[in-house]
Computed example of a mutant assay.
Amino acid sequence: MDMTHRMAAHFDAAIQTLQANASALAPALASGVDLLFSALTSNARILACGNGGSATDAQHFVAELVGRFERERLPLAGLALNTDTAILTAVGNDYGYETVFERQVNALGQPGDVLVAISTSGNSPNVLRAIEAAHDREMSVIALTGKGGGMISGLLQETDVHLCVAHDRTMRIQEVHIVLLHALCDGIDALLLGDSA
């Protein structure tokens, strides 16, 4: 295979993965928008977490909330739990890396807040513990996973939203995750700004 063909194949695979997941995830996405909109319009906050590429996705999502997505609006209350190196290193050193998000959820989370938990495998120990802490604090969870949902799928409650990408390859899952996060942002803005288009 020449390199040009190899590169083109990535576009084909990404398109196929997006199309394969579109109809399956659209209803859950709509539920996620409703959950986030309800929280944000009730003075609750959105906390987000993930590791590696998922950490970047969590930061990206929160940046769209606090800054703006595509249109001018008031800033929305969001916080990425993977951005404070002092907290991450102190908690990781003193209590173990698996607690770095759980401890922040326990410190910052309030009933009515929403945790956006991102893990392509669905098995990240620190994300699992963050979900458990969120439930203990009467928070809802929107989980973005892949590979069948992993252990996260067994932790979720009826009031939670599971956006599980039907694929086993990490990069394809991450590509869909960013589309899902952008769709959530668009849905929030559409409700806030009265745009039904």
Rank of each mutant, 00 (worst) to 15 (best):
M3K: 00
M3L: 10
A9V: 02
H10G: 01
D12C: 04
A14D: 09
T17Y: 08
L18Y: 05
Q19I: 09
Q19N: 08
A20Q: 13
N21W: 01
A24S: 05
L25H: 04
A26N: 13
A26G: 09
P27T: 01
S31Q: 15
F37A: 10
A39V: 01
A44Y: 08
A48T: 00
N51I: 07
G52K: 05
A55I: 07
Q59D: 10
L65Y: 00
E70C: 11
R71L: 14
E72G: 11
R73P: 15
L74Q: 14
L74I: 12
P75L: 04
L76Y: 04
G78P: 11
G78N: 04
G78R: 04
D84F: 08
T89N: 05
A90Q: 05
N93A: 06
D94M: 10
Y95I: 04
T99K: 14
E102L: 12
Q104L: 05
Q104W: 02
N106H: 12
N106M: 13
N106Q: 13
A107F: 09
L108R: 11
G109D: 04
G109L: 05
G112R: 00
L115P: 06
N123F: 08
N123C: 13
L128A: 02
A133H: 04
A133S: 10
H135F: 08
D136I: 14
E138W: 13
E138V: 12
A143V: 12
L144C: 13
L144R: 07
T145M: 11
K147A: 12
G149R: 01
M151K: 15
T159L: 13
V161W: 02
H162K: 06
H162T: 04
L163M: 05
L163E: 04
L163S: 06
C164W: 01
C164D: 11
I173Y: 01
E175F: 09
E175L: 10
V176R: 00
I178W: 01
V179Y: 08
V179M: 11
A183P: 15
C185W: 03
G187L: 06
D189H: 04
L192T: 03
L192G: 02
L193N: 00
G194C: 05
S196G: 09
S196V: 13
